[in-house]
Design a protein around this nucleic acid. Sequence first.
DNA 1: CTATAAACTTAGCCCCATCTAATTTCGCTC
DNA 2: GAGCGAAATTAGATGGGGCTAAGTTTATAG
Lengths: 225, 225
Amino acid sequence: MLSAIMEDYLKAIYYLQDETDERVRTSTFAEHMDVEQPSVTSMVKKLAERDFVHYEPYKGVVLTDTGIPIALEIIRHHRLLERYLTERLEYDWAEVHDEADRLEHHISSQFADRIAEQLGNPAVDPHGDPIPTADLDVSPPQSGETLADQQVGEKVRIERVPDHDPDLLRYLSEHGITPTTVVEIVETTSFGMVTLDPDGTDERVALPEEVARIITTQTLTGASN
Amino acid sequence: MLSAIMEDYLKAIYYLQDETDERVRTSTFAEHMDVEQPSVTSMVKKLAERDFVHYEPYKGVVLTDTGIPIALEIIRHHRLLERYLTERLEYDWAEVHDEADRLEHHISSQFADRIAEQLGNPAVDPHGDPIPTADLDVSPPQSGETLADQQVGEKVRIERVPDHDPDLLRYLSEHGITPTTVVEIVETTSFGMVTLDPDGTDERVALPEEVARIITTQTLTGASN
DNA sequence: CTATAAACTTAGCCCCATCTAATTTCGCTC
DNA sequence: GAGCGAAATTAGATGGGGCTAAGTTTATAG
């Protein structure tokens, strides 16, 4: 059996590996988990001993074939919970993350399967992230285009918004921006500001470019997730 | 903040205190929690330091006014979860206990309140145990009569069945015995066997007296939970 | 090719919750 | 009220996960 903490490390490796596409370094890790570097080193050694990760001292860490399904299972739990909490228990888009972050380690896969069933086996969570299936398939990474890539005048559908910053989520939802909403880019500035017009409204929503860069989009050619 | 384990100890004290109506002894405790006695002693000291229990060495332990609400909160979580799992997630009466036992420590009270709301703030869990309200009131202990107290020929309503033994629960539900069902006592023997006839059926269900003694009943005079 | 800063690991400590073995206290019998 | 067995406690160890401080290793600049 794995502790909740070990599961968290595996999940973190999965995410970080995905982002940087190479071995995850101790420092990246420590920052992400909000622990000191030596804690990471020692945990990583334990995980390596149990064969969940491949660890090369001073070089970083990669999930093994044993580790990947464990990470995916947790991610499945997390995203299903987020969906369930918002859809069935009236949680707010923004407050869902913390609750899911705790519960993901404690629900059985039976529980996960039951809520998945209740929800009609949804493909994505409320932030637009894909939910791994019961046999742990994940949809391929989506378009990869972000709001920051768009030209003025383009209309795109919001695909995915990262779920880590409640303030950002609150701001976005208050201004009508959630996955699946369509927005038009009305302005981009040289000093890194992107201004949007959510579907049909007259309201303008301004975002710093660094935020625009983490919100992925779909081009409007019929695909609808 | 309390650890899940401390919460478990407090919950256990609450239950055991209720049963025996006096200070809970180390040995009782150890058996109930499935740990060795020294573990109990050391944990109890920590709880006493934090003023959750009153502890007198060699004498046993009682919950303080600080400890009681914590135990009740956990019990509320547990019973709401049991209800939610059976009613909304198609869990079986018998398999509900373990899942609830883990989750009770990890759901927020917000979560508890939401599922309570979804369920229409039920008063009892699927085993017939009362669910503490959001402000932690518990209904007074019920009749106190059990199946073992009944005379042959009596008809009573099943009130409460303890939730700890999945095998027993499975057996009972297979034979149509759950809280709120009405049964007639058809036979009691000198060697400790009680035979029942669940409402309207012709089936006979036999129970050893030690089981009959933990199933509480209501007399059939209009009261309905 | 060396010097040095940054990144990483090792060493050694802490707290938590558990255990076994050894000791103390309780409560009862005679 | 002395002795004895059962119950409880203390002592001391273990494993999990974290920290700080003190080395290493790596990578980069010159």
